[in-house]
């Protein structure tokens, strides 16, 4: 009887260890942004765990390098960031504090996706900080283009497959499915923007550059006089003139900026519509997937 009990106990322990090892076998991914977390989750599904450092309501340029983020990164198998200097003020400190050689820059556990999806606004020639907080390697807000989001999924799928070869086929299939879905939905979204008749829009920062580019919306004025510099009254007067001259119908204010700056514009140009928009997953309620994010942006353009 005792022998049977002992055997049962050993089996129980071995089973527990097996399940424990299976749990540990999941790749632990940390992303800098919620958009990257969402795309990674689409690719890795239940084969991975993934969490984001920044929240969807935060300006990704200015995240504080909390030591608790270092703790998260210390246990990560893969860190996925945008690059293009978006996270330069905080990610290097977190990576250094994590003391995790697997995720050091240049290692397979460190993936920067921004440079791999043909960034826009890459600076050619000389550059100076008199032009504001310019990103010399290109505008980093690449995830707001659904086509580039699909490309990012494929890139992430490839890296996950390298790190976890056993599930390579699943990662690549999931990435491909997401990529295809984005391509198909983009056609529908493009048709809706076309139907809305909106050809021009104003934004607060150059956050929506890729979104505007994909949906053929011109962005002739930005509320910031220069990247990273808050709006001044003189610049707002210039913007009002551009809105009037070019008959711009809508202002989209990214929701981590102060939306009251549009009050003056709306009082001068009552016909202009102003919307505060989420520009990241979790940036507003019910923005849980990339599809939700693009859908909400399209509705803001449509005025719905």
């Amino acid at each position: 009887m005792n022998k049977t009990k002992s055997i049962s106990l050993v089996v129980l322990i071995l089973t527990a260890l097996t399940f424990s090892n299976a749990a540990q076998a999941k790749l632990n991914v940390v992303t800098t942004l919620t958009d990257l977390r969402s795309i990674t989750s689409e690719v890795g599904k239940d084969l991975i765990t993934v969490e984001s450092i920044a929240k969807g309501t935060q300006d990704p340029h200015f995240i504080e390098a909390k030591p608790s983020f270092m703790l998260k990164m210390s246990k990560a198998d893969l860190v996925i960031s945008i690059g293009l200097d978006l996270e330069i003020g905080w990610l290097p400190s977190i990576l250094q504090g994590a003391r995790n050689p697997k995720i050091a820059v240049g290692q397979p556990g460190n993936l920067e996706v921004g440079p791999m999806v043909e960034p826009l606004e890459v600076v050619k020639g000389n550059i100076s900080r008199s032009e504001g907080d310019v990103h010399p390697f290109g505008n980093p807000h690449v995830t707001l283009d659904p086509i580039r989001a699909g490309q990012i999924a494929v890139i992430i799928g490839k890296r996950l497959a390298e790190l976890d070869a056993e599930h390579a086929t699943q990662y690549q299939a999931n990435a491909s499915a997401f990529d295809t879905r984005m391509k198909e939905k983009t056609k529908l979204w493009q048709a809706r923007v076309e139907k809305s008749g909106v050809k021009k829009a104003v934004s607060y920062h150059k956050t929506l550059t890729y979104f505007f580019s994909r949906f053929n919306i011109e962005n002739p004025a930005i509320l910031e006089p220069k990247p990273g510099i808050p709006p001044t009254s003189g610049h707002i007067i210039d913007v009002i003139k551009i809105i009037k001259d070019q008959k711009i119908p809508v202002i989209l204010v990214e929701n981590y900026f102060d939306p009251t700056v549009t009050n003056k514009i709306k009082s001068d140009v009552p016909s202009v519509r102003s919307a505060t928009v989420a520009v990241a997953i979790d940036g507003a309620p019910k923005i849980d997937k990339m599809d939700d994010l693009y859908e909400a942006l399209i509705k803001s353009v449509e005025g719905k």
Binding site: A65, P67, D85, S93, R129
Partner: peptide, 10 residues
């Protein structure tokens, strides 16, 4: 500060 972008400590 001029030059490289500073990394901020918490």
């Amino acid at each position: 500060t001029i030059g490289a972008h500073p990394a901020h400590a918490y």
